[in-house]
Structures are given as C-alpha cells and as structure tokens.
C-alpha cells in the first residue's frame, strides 16, 4: 500500500474526480426513461472512458498505472451510480456527482486492499 502522503492525496483526488466525472458523463448520456440495466451498462462504459481521461490528466503528477487503472475502475463505479440514480428516479447532476465520489473512494480502498495482497515477491 502506498505510504507517501503526496501519493495518497493524489490517489484520493484521482479516484474521487474519476468517479465524479464518470457519474457526470453518465448523467449526460442516460435519461430517466432508461431501464435500469442498460443504464448501468452505459454508465460502466462512459464512466470508464471518463475515468481514463481523468487518470491521463492526473498521470503526470501522481504516476501512470497506479493512477490510470484505479481511475478507470472508479469511473466505472461512478458511471454505475450515475446510471442507477438517473434511470432509477431522475436524479439531478449535483446528486449524481456527489453520490459518485464515495463510489470512487470505495474503489480506491478496494485497490489498496488488492495492492496489499499482491505486492511483493510473486508466487
């Protein structure tokens, strides 16, 4: 797990922004008439693209793979949340954005747990 404060802050910013952007882009694509499952699927796709773009932007400051992979996943999670909110009950942009951010932070915790599991000598 990353222990340097600069990179921990960067990871948090990166995943929060990626998930927020994923939710935001999903809000643009999905409308409240959509069935839930296609809305979630669309959210995953556009969320991942948004997350990758955010990761690319954060990459020069905080790392490459350590930034782009969590950002892509956080974007997907943000997109799923966005799809659920918009298709579920027509939630607004602010609600989607603010609800997606915790999903991004949960994604980062997931990545940190995986990192603790995989880091070190490979079997």
């Amino acid at each position: 797990m990353e222990r340097r404060l600069y990179f921990i802050i960067g990871d948090i910013l990166n995943c929060a922004l990626a998930a927020g952007a994923g939710g935001w882009l999903t809000w643009l694509v999905v409308t409240d008439g959509w069935p839930i499952l296609p809305a979630i699927a669309a959210g995953m796709v556009v969320g991942m693209m948004a997350g990758m773009l955010v990761g690319l932007f954060c990459s020069p400051f905080f790392g490459i793979m350590e930034v782009i992979l969590p950002a892509a996943l956080a974007g997907q999670m943000g997109g799923i949340v966005g799809g659920l909110i918009v298709a579920g009950y027509g939630g607004g942009l602010n609600e989607v954005f603010l609800s997606a951010i915790p999903a991004g932070l949960l994604t980062l915790i997931f990545v940190y747990l995986l990192q603790a599991r995989f880091r070190g000598e490979a079997k």
Binding site: R119, G120, E121, A122
Partner: peptide, 24 residues
C-alpha cells in the same frame, strides 16, 4: 513479459510486484 523472458531462454530468479501484478 515474465512469460516472454522464459520463452527467450532465460531462467527467472525473482519477480517482485510493485503495483498489483502490473508494475514489477
């Protein structure tokens, strides 16, 4: 890449993961 290293005839002594199993 570890598989490619083996396929090229090297003997791998150690693979150390740095970020997940991606950076090593």
């Amino acid at each position: 890449t570890p598989a490619n290293v083996r396929a090229a005839g090297f003997t791998i002594g150690k693979v150390t993961n740095i970020f997940l199993d991606v950076v090593k």
